[in-house]
Design a protein around this nucleic acid. Structure first.
Lengths: 256, 256
DNA sequence: TGTCCCTACTTGTTCCTACATGTTCTACTA
DNA sequence: TAGTAGAACATGTAGGAACAAGTAGGGACA
């Protein structure tokens, strides 16, 4: 399966940019010239260039030409860890209290997120996370059951979910998409976390995948906003994972 | 000055989406049908649809059709940009209302953050940010005055701070460190943003630097949590500290 | 009943042409 | 010499055509 022509051309130009053969600010050959060089139509070149432009690698100016973007920066490098590892790294003691741990069936929302059939088995793990012995977060994890049969034999009040997934099922998280919002804790959540109304919580929804793109888990968490903040580095990259503000993208699972 | 045809068509479809005439998940007419309906070529329709797809409003599936996006994590273009650019990219109209714009002197906290002498001049810009005409966030920006003399001559209710910094002072943001927390809006903030107590806000503190490591600005923002969420991708591929949960690393500036 | 295949339909890719619009530089003109 | 008209060239927009590739559904067949 070969890539589309315009993709190959975009890749080839991108490579020239990344190797420095084309320096920032440099002007690309005209679309006409590129089409002759590659022996393809101008449309195909434009398709390739518009891909690169969408990713921020190049900029086109009508009547002038197409240029390598000046402010192009190296890729963001960001670790993806589970809660346990993140806290351990920070020298905290982590504990968990299991609220629920069972097999449920996929409703339409879970089916879509986890890429499983409607009604398929889903592992549901609901935990109160403790840091230094005090309530820190509530974490509801949903995993497709098909790749992790028997996972509930483990005691996740002691073991780390990510450790078990890696060691026993060879599922290693590679990347994730995550959404962070703020809400007022519901009475149930507030009570579990020993908070008094009204208390703000950080609501985090995360979809974790393997390198192959397989969905490992979908997690919804509420963190005590008085104890936790989310910290991140941003790069002014054009193409790499970064962070943006998103308006109203939420639907699906709600607080029970 | 009339817009391009494909733009008009994209706008018309976008309007249908935003008014709810086309619900999330709904399938659009086929490109062929759309081209007949609008009396234009299929290329023009595809141009319009690809614009909408780039902004995340629709998704096309080969052999099936084009659908209004309903995913939890819409595909987005990810840049470290200013508020204006981020929103513009998403096809939103951005406005600002200047609350304060003046020169102040650096207190110990600002001096440390901005790497300036105690008592040095600092530009203070306090804005209510509007998206689609409605209050969205409050943003307090602090900039060392030494590299941007005369910056307050600009009207930042109309101009973008990042645009002015880049165009007039040649200061281009390269990377930033950012902290995201959740709080209950203070009465002052709630009133400005048209919120009723108790309302959650996302509190964001960002320190932006140039490629040389020079601090361009320190910004504190409160975003309406009912309108905004923070979205980010995480990678497990590299070795540098990335997005982690941080426990209470905050000090310094407080809500006035 | 279950499988396979064919067909109709949809989007994806690639080619073509034509004209519009914006920029730059040159050469002519006043 | 200064100013301008215009050539040359760049991207932007619009339309047409053809074939590739993927999907869904119906129908034939085992």
């Amino acid at each position: 399966m070969t890539k589309a022509l315009y993709q190959q051309i975009a890749d080839s130009i991108l490579e020239q940019i990344q190797t420095g053969a084309l320096e920032p600010g440099a002007r690309l050959p005209s679309e006409h010239d590129l089409s002759e060089q590659h022996g393809v139509g101008r449309n195909t070149i434009r398709h390739a260039l518009s891909e690169l432009a969408a990713k921020g690698y190049v900029e086109s100016v009508q009547g002038v030409g197409t240029f390598v973007t000046e402010t192009l920066f190296p890729k963001t490098v960001e670790f993806l860890y589970g809660f346990s590892q993140e806290m351990a790294q920070r020298g905290k003691t982590v504990g968990s209290q299991i609220l629920e741990a069972k097999i449920i069936t996929a409703d339409p929302f879970l089916a879509r997120i986890l890429r499983v059939q409607l009604g398929a088995e889903v592992v549901f793990l609901n935990r109160l996370r403790l840091v230094d012995g005090k309530p820190a977060a509530i974490e509801r994890a949903y995993l497709p059951h098909n790749f992790c049969h028997g996972i509930l034999e483990h005691d996740f009040s002691k073991e780390s979910l990510y450790d078990v997934l890696a060691a026993r099922f060879n599922m290693k998280p590679d990347h994730a998409e995550q959404e962070i919002g703020a809400e007022i804790a519901t009475p149930q959540v507030a009570e579990l976390m020993d908070l008094e109304y009204p208390a703000p919580v950080l609501v985090i929804r995360r979809e974790t995948r393997t390198a192959e793109g397989r969905v490992i888990e979908y997690v919804e968490s509420e963190f005590r906003a008085d104890r936790f903040r989310f910290y991140t580095n941003l790069k002014a990259t054009a193409s790499s994972p970064g962070a943006v503000f998103q308006r109203f993208p939420i639907e699906g699972l709600q607080e029970s």
